[in-house]
């Protein structure tokens, strides 16, 4: 039997490498870049009474003559109209505060789970994940029942004699905070838990041995070492909350202007797909910047290589 040509193995190796590298790029191209390109294209068009309801970006006018029309008015409008800017800012503010609240609530919980006895951990984790078994919408609806003026919370507070008249929580920004923190808390806890459970407890013992009191040891050892988990959790909360639509729509009031709701209005009520796309593109740009910054920071923390 003749020996296989020597470069055959090399060749298949190269092919498999190409496939290995290619698949993520294909994935990225198919599920991110392509939709992005479509949205970008729509954002540069003009609304039209047609199906689909926007103008084509290019058309063949004549043989050999391609006319491309790029309409930047949508971006200009988003930039000029303070409505969009204030919605973006409010969304960022809501996302920021909610991320902070999730972190403040989630960190102690994740820490408690990570340091709990082995047999308890799985139960506690189950409790964190359990709400996911109920539809997200139904859980948000449940909050309407809790927060409304004749809801569980107000009834309880009145029964306890803490308040006389019901608190107006539903349809306010506070209700959005409650709903978002409730819904997104697991997304903060799980990466933090994954991170903290890997924390080498002997590091804390070493810190104590070197004269470090528990609080300082937490600040100087646990906290910096869990920074990757904090960043991951914060991104998992912050990014979707900026564009969150369902919670502000169901729990928020008319004054809680968020970009997700604005997108909905532009897309559905105004049938203005181009403007909605422009808004989406700007939102994406606004999110990619902090994302890349965090990624950088994380690399610096994790890698530590100069």
């Amino acid at each position: 039997m003749p020996a296989p040509p020597p470069n055959r193995a090399k060749h298949t190796h190269r092919t498999s490498r190409l496939v290995n590298i290619g698949i993520p790029y294909l994935w990225l191209g198919l599920f991110f870049l392509l939709p992005f390109a479509i949205v970008l294209q729509i954002s540069l068009a003009e609304p039209a009474l047609a199906q689909p309801p926007y103008t084509a970006l290019w058309q063949w006018v004549d043989e050999g003559l391609l006319r491309i029309e790029i309409n930047l008015r949508n971006f200009m409008m988003v930039a000029e109209d303070d409505l969009y800017l204030s919605a973006l800012l409010n969304s960022l503010q809501v996302a920021f505060i909610c991320t902070l609240l999730c972190l403040l609530l989630g960190y102690p919980m994740a820490y408690a789970i990570a340091t709990a006895p082995e047999r308890w951990r799985i139960i506690l984790l189950m409790l964190i994940v359990l709400p996911f078994w109920t539809s997200f919408l139904i859980r948000v609806y449940a909050w309407i029942g809790i927060l409304k003026s004749k809801g569980l919370l107000n009834d309880l507070l009145i029964w306890l004699g803490l308040i006389d008249t019901p608190l107006a929580i539903l349809h306010t920004q506070t209700a959005i905070y409650i709903g978002v923190v409730y819904s997104y808390l697991p997304f903060m806890i799980l990466p933090l838990y994954a991170n903290l459970s890997r924390l080498d407890m002997s590091l804390l013992e070493a810190a104590a041995d070197l004269g470090c009191r528990p609080m300082r040891a937490f600040l100087r050892v646990t906290l910096p070492l869990s920074m990757a988990g904090i960043l991951a959790g914060s991104m998992l909360v912050f990014i979707p909350v900026v564009g969150e639509f369902v919670i502000p729509d169901l729990l928020g009031g008319p004054e809680s202007l968020m970009v997700g709701k604005l997108l909905w209005t532009e897309f559905f009520s105004n049938k203005d797909w181009p403007l909605a796309s422009a808004l989406a593109i700007l939102l994406l740009a606004l999110l990619v910047v902090p994302f890349v910054m965090m990624q950088r920071l994380q690399q610096r923390i994790e890698g530590g290589r100069p």
């Binding site: 080498d200 002997s202 013992e205 070493a206 910096p224």
Partner: peptide, 10 residues
Amino acid sequence: MFQSYALFPH
């Protein structure tokens, strides 16, 4: 001195 050395990785 710890068996695992317990050096602070950060």
